[in-house]
């Protein structure tokens, strides 16, 4: 059976009402690494306030997909739009099209391996974007940063260097750093995959709180139970295409299709 027959697109941009306009949308996204085509034509919309879980076997292209959403990977073809404006390849925005720089100011990202700046303290990590990129006054950026650090429970660590933190703490700082840019969308790329099992919970708690506050997020995760719980919608990526798309309940608990069932079965084994 062709995978594309499994694909359903519940939110058509044309049919949706204005309030439901996607913040981020991709059409016909394709990406190859060498001779391997990792993404083979992805259409996806992300609506304001939506929490989208992206699941799939390793090598399915889910990380590449989320990394295309802020142009960390440059697609070979296809279109990316931020609030309807097309994203161009260059760094600067120009007449109508959005540059990569502006895109990333609105679309934050948290990485699997945290990627905190080791030469800067926790507070300096969090204010770096607002001060350098948004040109905010330092005092103002620090006040915002301290609020965020308090929310992730790390205000006491403001002067610590990242290498003195646990993995869970590092990832919470990384989330605060991304939030300090006040992004419209947050991309979470396997943010618990590099953590010791006992540290996963503290990061998921922060993500869950963000979801409850209405943060728009795309989450690539292997935590199926968490995805089912926190997401409004789940897509299953398989061999470079969206093989299933629907509510977490439909996709994760009543899976249609052999490969999705096989994938999910592994988590119950």
């Amino acid at each position: 059976m062709d995978e594309s027959t499994l694909m359903n697109t519940p939110r058509s941009a044309a049919a949706a009402p204005a309030a439901d306009d996607p913040i981020l949308s991709v059409r016909g996204l394709r990406k190859s690494f060498g001779s391997i085509e990792v993404l083979r034509g992805i259409d996806l919309d992300l609506t304001r306030g939506e929490v989208l879980a992206i699941i799939g076997p390793s090598g399915s292209g889910k990380s590449t997909l989320i990394r295309c959403l802020n142009m960390m990977e440059v697609p070979d073809s296809g279109e990316l739009r931020l609030r309807g404006r097309p994203v161009a390849r260059g760094f600067r925005s120009r007449n109508g099209s959005i540059g990569v720089g502006e895109l990333r100011r609105h679309v934050g990202m948290v990485f699997q391996h945290f990627n905190l700046f080791p030469h800067k303290t926790v507070l300096e990590n969090v204010i770096e974007g607002p001060v350098v990129v948004l040109k905010r006054p330092r005092a103002e950026a620090e006040a915002v940063a301290m609020d965020l650090l308090a929310r992730v429970g790390l205000d006491a660590k403001r002067d610590a260097y990242p290498n003195h933190l646990s993995g869970g703490q590092k990832q919470r700082v990384a989330i605060a750093r991304a939030l300090a840019m006040q992004p419209d969308v947050l991309l979470l790329d396997e943010v618990t995959s590099a953590l010791d099992p006992e540290l996963v919970g503290e990061v998921l708690t922060v993500v869950r709180a963000l979801a409850e506050e209405g943060m728009t997020m795309a989450i690539v995760t292997h935590e199926i139970a968490f995805a089912a719980d926190v997401a409004d919608r789940a897509v299953f990526i398989d061999r470079g295409v969206i093989a299933a798309d629907g509510t977490p309940d439909a996709v994760l608990h009543n899976p249609e299709g052999e490969r999705l069932r096989a994938f999910l079965a592994r988590f119950h084994a």
């Binding site: 802020n70 960390m72 990627n115 770096e128 350098v132 990129v133 750093r177 991304a178």
Partner: peptide, 24 residues
């Protein structure tokens, strides 16, 4: 990952080089 983290904040190549890469 350091280049990527700087880029993800919207830094230009020059900003990332000066603020993140060169100091380290």
């Amino acid at each position: 990952g350091q280049h990527e983290a700087a880029a993800a904040l919207g830094m230009s190549g020059g900003q990332a080089m000066r603020r993140i890469i060169l100091p380290q």
